[in-house]
């Protein structure tokens, strides 16, 4: 497994772990009727801090374990795989944009979500965008891992 592939696996795990915690927090807060914009902002801030901390730690640990390849530049295969991952992530982000616009234009379509979360509409849109960006990120990493394993 190359340095780059290992790094992608760890980033994927970090992304899943952090965002699972975020959505768990949102879910349990909404179950207890205690979900508020302040609580959501606090959860988002936690996500940002954890992401930065864990990504720094991950790069440090991987560089220490595999110090020979720590300054490794992407070669053409890495670039091609990165491009394929970004392309699939882009499709998800585009779909997210359409869903966010549809939510704004036709709020009736996402009434269930509004009732479940009990948040002002702008916070619902923020969460739609967050979910879309998260799925895009997971898609990007998963695509890259897939092509590293299967070949391209």
């Amino acid at each position: 497994m190359s340095y780059k592939e290992r790094s992608i696996w760890v980033s994927l795990a970090i992304t899943l772990y952090i965002w699972f915690n975020y959505f768990s927090e949102l879910y349990w807060s909404s179950q207890q009727q205690s979900l508020s914009p302040e609580r959501m902002q606090s959860a988002l801030l936690t996500v940002v801090i954890w992401t930065i901390a864990l990504e720094i730690l991950h790069h440090l640990v991987i560089a220490m374990i595999d110090h020979k390849n720590a300054n490794y530049d992407q070669d053409e295969r890495d670039q091609k795989i990165a491009l394929l991952g970004c392309k699939n992530g882009y499709y998800i982000l585009s779909a997210t944009t359409i869903i966010a616009v549809l939510h704004l234009l036709f709020p009736i379509m996402s009434q269930g979500l509004v009732l479940a979360l009990n948040l002002p509409t702008e916070y619902i849109i923020i969460n739609i965008i967050i979910v879309g960006a998260l799925i895009a990120e997971i898609t990007k990493f998963s695509t890259q891992v897939f092509y590293y394993r299967r070949g391209c």
Binding site: D75, R77, G151
Partner: peptide, 22 residues
Amino acid sequence: VQVSRQTIVAIEKDKYSPSLEV
């Protein structure tokens, strides 16, 4: 050829078609 060892492995296994340059 200035690529990673994993890229050579992938080329040898026919899992990756290199660029013309490589």
